[in-house]
Design a protein around this nucleic acid. Structure first.
Lengths: 220, 220
DNA sequence: GTCTATAGAGAGATAGAC
DNA sequence: GTCTATCTCTCTATAGAC
């Protein structure tokens, strides 16, 4: 995993000492990778601690229990994503352009932080209408954001396209996440790397085409 | 889960008594649901046994251990899928029509057996190029099947479309699986049911459009 | 803040009766 | 074939020293 270091966005970290803040960030980084690779149950706190270079018991100084650590990981990565998409969607310019920029930003985000793709796959698989997964809490504001943008008055696109934002988001999210996470898994022999620039660009073209059709803004 | 009962396709079941065969099939059915809902680690054999109406220890009469049970579940569902797709892809008629029929059959399969969607999401998330997941073993023959069909001589489509079968399959599989599994999870409030006929048909139209474009057989 | 030591629960797997 | 009883191991979480 060649991800850039993940800066802690927890506002409370300012109150903590510098060293403690670093340890906390390191725990989050390792935990993100391990939860993504193995899932919540199979990921062992022992391995998280070892990756950070501390003992297992020390983790409980920063997080009350495993579940709280997992929630923190999810909040961290989903917060980054929402921030990114919000700045693109709420910017200036025609809605159609902003929508495409958001799709592009989404793809870049997943490509830059591939552990997120696996986390998302697992969250989706874990959820059920009965037992609402933590993910749902984080996704709601995102859908509201998309809905707000699609409902913007005065834009031709908003009036012309009776888009179901749910449908739109799910197709885009699903194809990208699956593309990034499934290929190395399903084709262990081919050394297929979906993160290669050409692969990513081909995927981007494809997804943008889908988005344009769903948004009703023409075929090309 | 309102799936139809899953008939055991294990050829060895003919050698077993009728009652034992039924128990084995019931175990596979419950295990499929629980592995799908909770994943390999979090799914408890206790719950599988309870769903079947037997005791945990009795499971080990049919399967040596948890891993073997999981493998059997995967073999069962992936075997059904491959059978289905093979009969469509290897049939008569122009390649373009068979390809579309296969996409349609894929969507019907996932819709009829939604637990499979979650199993697939988890398998993808579990895998890594290093530790090849069981899924890869089952998927290989499927890719070979697709490759064989795409390489058929004499068909105009086969010559006109330099399709990467990997890319094609991943986009189709990813969007469908995500569509079916993610929506009830991500929108617990809306009571969104992706298996509703209209929803499925909308998804089918969309995916067929994607497939046509990837196969180079026109925009509509 | 980080450690060692340990408690305690959960779940997979086995032994052997019926 | 299915059961009860039990073993064993793994992993989370706590207690308390430094």
């Amino acid at each position: 995993m060649a991800d850039a270091p993940i800066p802690s966005r927890d506002p409370a970290s300012a109150r903590r000492g510098l060293r403690a803040g670093r340890t906390r960030a390191a725990i989050l980084e390792s935990a993100e990778r391990l939860f993504a690779e193995r899932g919540f149950s199979a990921a062992r706190l022992e391995d998280v601690a070892e990756a950070v270079g501390i003992r297992r018991a020390s983790l409980f100084y920063y997080f009350r229990d495993k579940a709280e650590l997992y929630d923190a990981v999810l909040a961290d990565v989903l917060g980054s994503l929402r921030e990114r998409l919000a700045s693109v969607l709420l910017g200036a310019g025609p809605l159609a352009e902003r929508a495409e920029a958001a799709v592009s930003a989404w793809i870049d985000f997943v490509a830059a932080r591939p552990a997120f793709a696996r986390l998302l796959l697992r969250e989706v698989a874990d959820g059920s209408p009965a037992h609402e997964p933590p993910l749902a809490r984080h996704v709601r504001p995102f859908f509201e954001l998309v809905g707000r943008v699609l409902a913007e008055p005065g834009d031709p696109l908003a009036r012309a396209a009776p888009v179901d934002p749910v449908n739109l988001a799910s197709v885009i999210a699903g194809s990208t996440v699956f593309f990034v996470a499934a290929m190395p898994t399903l084709l262990p022999g081919l050394h297929f790397d979906p993160l290669q620039p050409e692969r990513i660009e081909a995927h981007r073209r494809e997804v943008l085409g889908i988005a344009r059709r769903l948004l009703g803004s023409g075929e090309s």
